[in-house]
Computed example of a mutant assay.
Amino acid sequence: MRQVIIALDIFSLMVSFLVLYCSIFEVKSHKERNRSFTVCVILVIIGQFFNLLSWILDGQVEHEKFLFFTVFMYGIMGYVIAVYFIYYLWTLINETHPISKWTVIPIISISGPYILWMAYLILTGRGVKIVDGHYRVGDLYLLTQIYPVLCMIWAVVMILYYASELGRRKVAACFAYMLSPASTVIIHFYYPDVSFSYAAFGYAVLIVYVMVQAEQEREYKTRENTLIEASTRDSLTGLYNRRAYDMACTQMKKFDTVGIIFCDANGLKRTNDAQGHAAGDRLLLSIANGLIDIFSRKQVFRISGDEFVVMCPNMPYETFHAQMISLGAFVRRSGMPIASVGEAYGSGVEIHQLVKEAEQQMYLDKEQFYSDYPKMERRNR
């Protein structure tokens, strides 16, 4: 049995270190909640370490003093873990339903005197004792379990009272965290030679991490991605905006060939003045939808009020040219072109240089538009 418990403790310790690593490096959201959980895991690891040492030293009479020290330390850590879990539970509830710290201060405030008293019971051999190199419970062992039981009752009341704020997933995780070590304490009381408490703590923190910490981080990343997506989208057309365009320009450096199309709405100001901004919006939406129909939505950017840029990375020139023909037919489908268009295609050319070339071509097309439709020129409005 001793070898089995040592093996379980070692595996549980490895699990706890993995949870600690994930808690520190993987979870970025809800700093106070995650910080308190990280401290819980560190406390569990310390307790697991001393518990493992106690089982390794068990039966070695020549190391009785060191064995007593390890038993004393993991006993103390058990109470500290129980106290800190109350605080962690408070941070969980406080995220969705702000509550006063006085909810947990009473139970936490008595932890100091109780731990000192419990240390006295251990040191005097009344709580636990070492007999012939083996750990044994003392005649007042039950008294050492009063505070952990109080902590558990307090936590259960908090969980049940704030169950709706916590949600079923967090409630289940918290109960799993408490019941796993608690069940092993009961077993240990009836079978003193069997103790899986700290091994159970390792699996308990894993349950909490998977069901609460990691899940919350996934929700946080989803919200973060949603915000990023919203910040890179144009509210009118749904196309990528100038911010997304700047990001795309940075990424375009890795492509061998890039085709650029620069598109500028014709007569937007005149349309807004003569027919109202709703008509101007319809003109912009018409251009945006036409670009989406010909190209992919992820290639099209609205970089300013009436300007659009299309990026075509690694597209064969034949395909690019064919799509340009389709775009030309689209902008002239009603007779008067609704937009002026310029293009540039290159390999190994800096992306901003290609955009500048396409913009210059667009201005030439714009001059031709004003030449064909002089009434649309701004000075004639």
Score class of each variant (00 low, 15 high):
A163Y: 01
R168Y: 07
I86S: 13
I81H: 00
L143A: 08
Y88I: 05
I86N: 03
T184G: 07
S111Y: 11
V212N: 08
I187C: 11
A199N: 11
Q213K: 09
I76E: 07
R126F: 11
V149R: 10
Q145W: 02
L150S: 07
G127T: 07
S183P: 00
G133E: 02
C151Q: 05
I93E: 04
L160T: 13
G75Y: 09
S197F: 00
Y141T: 09
Y120N: 07
G138M: 10
Y114P: 08
Y141I: 08
L166S: 01
L121H: 03
Y135M: 04
Y203S: 14
G75Q: 09
F189A: 09
G133Q: 10
Y147E: 05
C151K: 01
T91H: 08
V104I: 10
Y209C: 04
Y161E: 13
Y190R: 06
R169E: 15
I122E: 11
M158Y: 13
T70D: 05
Y203R: 03
G138A: 13
F196T: 00
G125K: 08
A155C: 12
I146Q: 14
V157S: 12
A173Q: 09
M178Y: 01
A82D: 02
G127W: 07
F175E: 08
A172N: 05
W154P: 05
T103Q: 12
W117P: 10
K101T: 14
V128Q: 09
V212S: 14
T96G: 14
Y209P: 02
M211C: 10
V80G: 03
I86K: 00
A182T: 06
N94A: 06
Y162E: 08
F85P: 00
H188M: 04
S111I: 03
T144A: 06
G202A: 15
G167W: 04
C151Y: 02
I99D: 10
Y209A: 04
S111P: 01
I99K: 12
D132P: 04
A82C: 01
I159T: 12
V205G: 00
L92K: 03
K129T: 11
V185M: 11
G202Y: 15
L67P: 04
V83Y: 08
L140T: 11
Y203A: 13
I86C: 05
P98E: 12
E95S: 13
P113L: 11
E95P: 03
S197W: 02
G167I: 12
P181A: 02
V194W: 05
V212C: 15
V212W: 07
W90Y: 11
F69L: 03
F69N: 04
A155N: 09
H188V: 06
M73L: 12
L142T: 03
L92E: 10
M73F: 12
S195A: 01
I93S: 03
I76V: 13
M211V: 12
T70V: 06
H188P: 06
I159P: 08
I108C: 15
I110H: 08
G127S: 11
P106V: 13
Y88F: 08
V131T: 05
I110R: 07
Y162M: 05
V208P: 01
Q213L: 14
Y147N: 09
W102K: 15
Y177S: 10
S100L: 10
V205I: 14
Y88N: 06
Y87V: 09
L142D: 05
S109K: 06
R168E: 08
L116G: 14
I207R: 01
P106L: 15
W154F: 15
G112I: 15
I110C: 10
